[in-house]
Amino acid sequence: MTRNNELRLPPWSGTDGKPCFLSTDDVNGHLSCLADNTEAIQLSLAAELLDHTSEVLEDTQAAPEELRALAHDLAESLRSTLRVAESRGHRLPLPGPDTHGNDTGGPMLPAAAFG
């Protein structure tokens, strides 16, 4: 669910492959539902591709052309999956002002601490 007045990154690209954004407060609207369904399809296809990848990699007779096509398909699937993850990450609720994002009460490291 998108937060009020926040743009949603849908699981498709705009002109020239550039990101496009969906602005709506209606999470049950036509475009929001289309984006949700498209995300579900993309994730399902990624799971199927992963299964196929295991089969191809187990085949010691796989032709180089088949491996290149598989690598291309995996890259496209990963690109779509990352877009879904980014979109869903933006839609996660923000921690309240009285919390630091963890339940332990301990300190949190800044993102820069992880490289």
Results as ranks from 00 to 15, higher is better:
Leu34Tyr: 01
Trp12Met: 04
Leu74Phe: 01
Asn37Tyr: 08
Leu70Thr: 06
Gly105Thr: 06
Thr99Val: 04
Leu7Glu: 12
Leu78Gly: 02
Pro93Glu: 08
Gly101Ser: 06
Thr60Asp: 10
Thr104Leu: 15
Glu6Cys: 14
Ala113Glu: 04
His100Trp: 11
Glu86His: 07
Leu92Met: 08
Leu57Ala: 07
Thr60Lys: 11
Pro93Asn: 07
Val84Thr: 06
Val56Cys: 10
Pro110Lys: 05
Gly29Val: 02
Glu65Pro: 08
Met108Thr: 15
Asn28Leu: 13
Glu48Met: 10
Pro19Thr: 08
Leu94Trp: 05
Thr99Met: 00
Leu31Arg: 04
Asp59Ser: 06
Gly14Pro: 07
Leu70Phe: 03
His30Pro: 10
Leu34Glu: 09
Ala62Val: 10
Ile41Glu: 15
Ala35Gln: 03
Glu76Arg: 14
Pro10Gly: 12
Met1His: 12
Glu55Tyr: 06
Pro11Leu: 08
Gly29Glu: 02
Gln42Trp: 09
Leu43Trp: 00
Gly115Thr: 05
Asn102Glu: 13
Ala113Arg: 06
Leu57Arg: 13
Leu92Trp: 00
Pro110Gly: 06
Glu55Ile: 11
Pro10Leu: 11
Glu58Tyr: 06
Thr2Glu: 13
Lys18Gln: 12
Glu58Phe: 04
Leu67Thr: 01
Thr60Cys: 02
His52Val: 01
Leu43Tyr: 01
Gly115Cys: 00
Asp16Lys: 15
Cys20Val: 15
Leu94Lys: 10
Gln42Ile: 13
Glu66Lys: 02
Asn4Ser: 15
Trp12Cys: 03
Trp12Gln: 02
His52Met: 05
Asp73Phe: 00
Leu7Gln: 13
Met108Tyr: 04
Leu49Thr: 00
Thr38Arg: 15
His52Ala: 00
His72Ala: 08
Leu45Ser: 03
Ser32Glu: 15
Gln61His: 06
Leu94Val: 08
Ala113Thr: 01
His30Tyr: 15
Val27His: 14
Glu66Asn: 01
Gly89Cys: 03
Ser54His: 09
Glu55Val: 12
Leu67Val: 09
Ala113His: 10
Leu70Ile: 07
Gly106Ala: 13
Cys33Lys: 12
Thr99Tyr: 03
Met1Cys: 02
Arg8Phe: 14
Lys18Glu: 09
Thr60Val: 09
Phe114Tyr: 14
Ala69Met: 09
Ser77Phe: 06
Gly105Asp: 08
Leu57Pro: 07
Ala40Lys: 11
